[in-house]
Write a protein that binds this DNA or RNA. Structure first.
Lengths: 201, 201, 201, 201
DNA sequence: AATGAATGAGCTTTCATTCAT
DNA sequence: TATGAATGAAAGCTCATTCAT
């Protein structure tokens, strides 16, 4: 007989993550104490450790959870789209994230995740994987466009990818920490700029 | 008469900042204790408070110091340059920062500065000023190019500025926290892309 | 279910108060550190904060505890007594306190409580309540005696009350801080003096 | 050749005491830091130690200074007065002190002096002397009255003295720390009470 | 599974005082 | 004599985490 159904445990886990996320994004990961989380989540001091073995693990779980969401952006795109439209839609969704306050919150939390010293192998590997997956999505679209002749071939793919990643990250910082939310106009300009360059004359 | 000259005091202050900077960039601002700084700077517990009244003040002094460096980038550009060359050189210097390990370190520290909750008016105002100055530099160049007919007039200045800022920020994150330093090729691609778009066909 | 019963917690709380009281009265409130209390009470640094949220709260709890003791002096007097006997017995009990070393200790602690700057509203209000309750007890007896014709009516009640309060306070200082304990003879003289004056010739 | 004239040194010493007194009475001895005194007295951190070897010494000097003032109360009384008048005038002057804000301030400082743990022989001896001198003044008047037949002889001198001392102390506490200043009416009542008792029927 | 008392290293900061200049 | 940088012990308190119940 299981102590508690696995399902119920998952639900509570999710709930704690929800609470932690809200607090982290409001007060910051560092400034949020386990006490705060426990109080809001209405769980006892010892109890929380049944679900997460440390405060760090809560943050890492949040990262994990968001990553899995993000990963679906590419998957959900129609594979029959032209590369032009695919990049356009990808960026629209990716940058559109920062139009919603909810996701600006995320950006704030993510920033502190990246600030974490990569002491432990666990953190280092998560950072690494996160970077790689992130990069592969973009690289995939660019290469696809080049291969089918839609995008100019005389560009340095890595450089383009590097810049797009940078822009997405940086807009996250602008939106999350500097409180300058993105608008549809901003998004459109970014898309235009990339496509204009990639399609060349 | 003062025990040590004002100049020597300045030197010691600088030295403490240097030490703090090194530690902040390695272990993170939060994880670095005053004790760590004292130990490395070889100063006593009370002594450090002669130079800085709090740990926060050390961080803010570092921000200040870096900002003043950055501010000169625009000032040092030859005002007789074409806007094309001015933007080109500005970006080259601005992004070139992230080629030096020293400045990637800075990026890591800056990230934690931006993560700081804007509790105190002091922090809030520094953040605000920093953002504004940053933005004005870029806006100035873009507007200059448009006004003299070098850059296309049918673009949304704010969007372009927003994106350039985002990119610079984001590349800071890539370089500082994700350990993906920028190369000359990356820089050139970024410049090409912006100019290509701004100059239109 | 709680780890330890509420009752046991109360007992431990009391014990900590006991220890703190002993130390405060020996070394003084200011000179006694939390560390001293922890060491003697055999509790850990964090543990004590389960019972008291600050050093000040310990002192205030001691004040509270003593006040509740003092408050019962008047309550316990037989209400059918003549005012003469009532004042006599009240003073005997009230001043008799300073015959016991335990209570002289208290006087020392109380002195530091009164020396506390009334910064916080909490402290200010406790001081105020303490003074008022104290005064009301005495005023009640004097007025009672005047109303039933036992005490002279041509005296200034407030002045008499002021003086009795002063004397009690001052004897506390003599006993607690100047190490001059009161004797039964002293007490009798004080009672005689007040009654002699109040009953007139 | 003297470094600085002894006279000038005395003047500065006095000035520092003045400043310290003001601060002690406002913020309390404990809460006042050497820094505060230095700042207000416009003297350097090292400089103050030329005049006083420690913070404690400043307090003790203040006590000393006040004591010498107090001592003159009895000296200044006309020795040809009746004991009735002498006690009356003595008490009027002694308690009158607490009508002036300046002297209530003193009472606050004195309280913290008496709170000082009598660790060092120096403090212990000052406390002792202070108590003795204080007591002798009062005892002298009472005995004088008894010896010349003005006061009743069937009273316990020590008890009467004890009580008068207590009253004076306690009124200091009421005035200094409890913010209940004395009035002329209060003083008159106290004098009446003592004389009424001492002159007997 | 859940509780919350207990832990103790650690935090930043303040303080009276010293001493090289 | 006078300065103020430097000292380092000690302060009160917080924290993530553990573990007996």
């Amino acid at each position: 007989m299981p102590k508690i159904s696995e399902e119920k445990k998952q639900i509570k886990r999710e709930y704690i993550l929800e609470v932690a996320f809200e607090l982290f994004s409001q007060k910051g990961y560092t400034a949020t104490g386990m006490r705060d989380i426990m109080k809001v989540a209405n769980i006892s001091k010892g109890g929380i450790y049944v679900y997460f073995k440390s405060k760090t693990e809560i943050l890492l779980s949040l990262v994990e959870r968001f990553d899995s969401k993000r990963h679906y952006i590419l998957d959900q795109l129609d594979k029959s789209l032209s590369s032009h439209d695919m990049l356009s839609q990808y960026l629209r969704k990716r940058l559109g994230i920062f139009k919603q306050e909810e996701n600006c919150k995320w950006s704030r939390v993510a920033l502190e995740f990246w600030s974490l010293p990569s002491n432990t192998p666990e953190i280092a590997s998560i950072k690494d994987r996160r970077y790689r997956e992130y990069k592969d999505d973009i690289k995939y679209i660019i290469n696809r466009g080049i291969n089918c002749g839609e995008f100019r071939s005389n560009c340095d793919v890595d450089s383009v990818v590097y810049q797009i990643m940078g822009t997405i990250n940086g807009i996250g910082v602008l939106a999350g920490s500097m409180n300058r939310v993105i608008t549809d106009k901003h998004i459109q300009t970014a898309i235009d700029m990339y496509l204009y360059y990639l399609k060349g004359e």
